[in-house]
Design a protein around this nucleic acid. Structure first.
Length: 613
RNA sequence: GCGGGCGUAGCUCAGUGGAUAGAGCAGCGGUCUUCUAAACCGUUGGUCGGGCGUUCGAGUCGCCCCGCCCGCGCCA
């Protein structure tokens, strides 16, 4: 699709080309820094070298030969040293952009580049039988935003919540339930109880590990004829005997195997946990505006695994070692080996993820599969992608791991039940809501309680979402409530507030019976007006860039810049008390368009835009 | 040891080969009888971790160091 700025770039390109001084392939246009009074620039350095004249001379000659066609969006072309600087025609841009926004409405900024193509996004993917905590928020929020962005770019997007509902962790859960009994209570309570059981069981596993490690240490000292060890011979033998007994880890692994093999009790407990978790998570998803097209957990792929393991062996990318484990050796230089099957015949997550790729390829024929997963799993995905390719799968699919950093507590420690520093997602959202509510109560006491609640929810949740989307997600982050729930400065509430101000103006205009529809946009030439219009014009490009970079923060940045531009306009240009009725009408169109643009941008982030705050 | 990531203002971060490196927070000083003060204005604050190189031009690309984080076959 060609938007106003696309046309501007095309026209500028044509102007340079038509001077017949430089080759097409040497024409690269760049966006100047904000302090340069231009909207597009052609740096002539490389072309000048090719042509054999000094850059400033070349720039000068291009400008001399430049012919701006009638109706062009180019307002002026000047040579500034070695640069050819193009400026937009403010009236022309205003007319074009407002027209586009009004014509496309909530589709303004969308594109058709993805038409007919499918993208699968794998996001959120919490573990079953665990309460969702802040650690799950990043994948959920980034994934949902990417869903909106690619959808807006015209792709058919499939969102899949790849639940962690299989594997040894369920062996642990089941073993714990068998040992200590099935928790009672409602969904959330039962899951909280399961969290505790799991922690209790892992502690035992850790103890076992310590025991085996100690036994091994003494065995080694014994081998080396260490005097102390020799003296404690009997005690060591007893220690080794204890360590050699099947322990909690073995028990868990056995239960996970039983689960895979369809043991009725294991299946029943597993199903109970899955249902429980899906129900409990739904409330978080509803609050965050997160929706999935599929919820296919790891268990879904279980029936495919045996055949795939055989296939991997037949194709020579894997082999069964002497213990019976199926091993995949270096698929590429420096890529560590990994397993597809345990020596006790249980499967592993690589196996299930491989099956998942095969399934998605067959069912959805996507052009991309995007995994929104913690950066710590980088190696896993490199191995997985290499394996899929080595087996001949996903030849025409781009496999993409969108990585993000880990959340640590304020002291920089990992979040863990043992450290007791877990922050649950629901608690975070509640706190965000409460803080926003306090501000609403103070700022807008006249609103109904119902309206205040809705605003507090939109603003509080918006703040949380924005906090995860406003920057490049690769860095690790420290849990900081003040920052996560920020409602000032570069934050969702600021953007929402500017949107609400637009709505307020439009509401008052409607009350006064002012009609905006036929306002002449070409009279919007005040610098603050032009700045807002230029921002609006940038949305389509921001959406494309966000897609190319898998980076919602590009949209967040656009929203913030737009809100700031609106703020300056709000300060400099009165709408309802504009100097003339024509100006008032034109500004009303601009305000309506800005509100629309902000709504669209926020929607791509998954953030609501209340009309009042 | 090998692999990945990060390092830009006191703090959190933009800056994807171009012109004088930008925001927010925090600090300091101002602005509500005027379309919502969740706002606005002014101001303080930088050896872009260090070095060498490539280039007309490097925060950005390459190499080498330094620091921090993460990962590396029977967990996910």
């Amino acid at each position: 699709m060609e938007y106003a700025l696309d046309r501007f770039v095309r026209e500028a390109h044509a102007v340079v080309a038509s001077a017949n001084l430089v080759d097409e392939h040497l024409i690269e246009l760049v966006t100047p820094k904000p302090n340069i009074p231009a909207d597009l620039a052609f740096p002539t350095f490389r072309a000048a070298k090719e042509v054999g004249i000094a850059p400033p001379q070349l720039a000068q000659r291009i400008v001399e030969k430049a012919q701006i066609p009638a109706g062009s969006l180019i307002g002026s072309v000047v040579a500034t040293g070695p640069f050819v600087n193009f400026s937009l025609s403010a009236p022309g841009l205003a007319a074009a952009v407002l027209d586009e926004v009004e014509r496309l409405g909530e589709r303004y900024g969308s594109d058709d580049q993805g038409t007919g193509k499918t993208i699968v996004i794998d996001y959120s993917s919490p573990n079953v039988a665990k309460t969702m905590h802040v650690g799950h928020i990043r994948s959920t929020i980034i994934g949902q935003s990417l869903y909106h962005i690619f959808n807006f770019l015209g792709y058919h997007v499939i969102g899949d919540n790849h639940l962690g509902d299989w594997g040894k962790q369920f062996g642990m859960n089941i073993a714990a339930i068998v040992r200590w009994g099935k928790p009672e209570g409602d969904d959330e309570d039962a899951i909280a109880a399961l969290d505790k059981l799991y922690a209790r069981y892992s502690a035992l596993v850790k103890e076992d590990e310590a025991l085996r490690a100690e036994a091994a240490r003494w065995a080694k000292r014994l081998e080396q004829n260490d005097p102390e060890a020799l003296a404690k011979r009997e005690w060591i033998a007893e220690l080794q005997a204890r360590a050699a007994q099947p322990n909690h880890d073995d028990e868990a692994r056995a239960w996970s195997l039983k689960l895979e093999q369809g043991d009725p009790l294991a299946r029943e407990l597993w199903q109970w946990m899955v249902d429980l978790t899906i129900k409990a998570n739904q409330r978080n998803y509803d609050r965050l505006g997160v929706r999935f097209d599929y919820v296919l957990g790891e268990s879904f792929y279980a029936p495919m695994l045996d055949a795939l393991i055989e296939e991997a062996i037949e194709k020579g990318v894997a082999y069964r070692d002497e213990d019976g484990a199926v091993v995949v050796d270096e698929l590429a230089p420096g890529l560590p080996t990994f397993l597809l099957q345990r020596s006790d015949s249980g499967t592993l997550y690589h196996t299930r993820d491989l099956a998942c790729i095969v399934y998605r390829e067959r069912e959805f024929r996507p052009v991309k599969i995007i995994y929104v997963v913690d950066t710590r799993q980088e190696l896993h995905f490199r191995q997985l992608f290499a394996l899929a390719r080595a087996m001949g799968y996903a030849r025409d699919i781009e496999l993409i791991h969108v990585k993000f950093g880990t959340i640590f507590d304020q002291q920089g420690r990992p979040l863990s039940t043992r450290a007791g520093n877990i922050v649950y997602l629901a608690d975070l959202l509640d706190e965000a809501h409460a803080r926003a509510r306090a501000v609403v109560d103070q700022a807008s006491p006249d609103l109904s309680d119902e309206e205040k609640e809705a605003i507090a929810e939109a603003v509080g949740i918006g703040a949380v979402i924005y906090n995860d989307l406003y920057q490049d997600p690769r860095r690790d982050i420290r849990l900081d409530w003040e920052r996560m729930l920020a409602i000032e400065g570069n934050s969702a509430p600021y953007i929402q507030y500017m949107h609400a101000r637009c709505c307020s103006i439009l509401r008052k205009a409607a009350e006064e019976g002012v009609v905006a529809r036929h306002g002449d946009a070409t009279i919007l030439t005040h610098p603050s007006e032009t700045a807002v219009i230029k921002q609006l014009a940038k949305l389509p490009g921001a959406v494309r860039e966000a897609g190319e970079r898998y980076a919602p923060f590009v949209i967040a940045e656009w929203c913030y810049e737009t809100a700031r531009a609106l703020s300056a306009f709000y300060r400099d240009c009165s709408v309802l008390r504009a100097e003339t009725p024509a100006l008032r009408a034109a500004r009303l169109r601009l305000v309506a368009a800005t509100a629309q643009g902000l709504r669209n941008g926020l929607a791509l982030l998954g953030i609501k835009a209340p009309e009042r705050m």
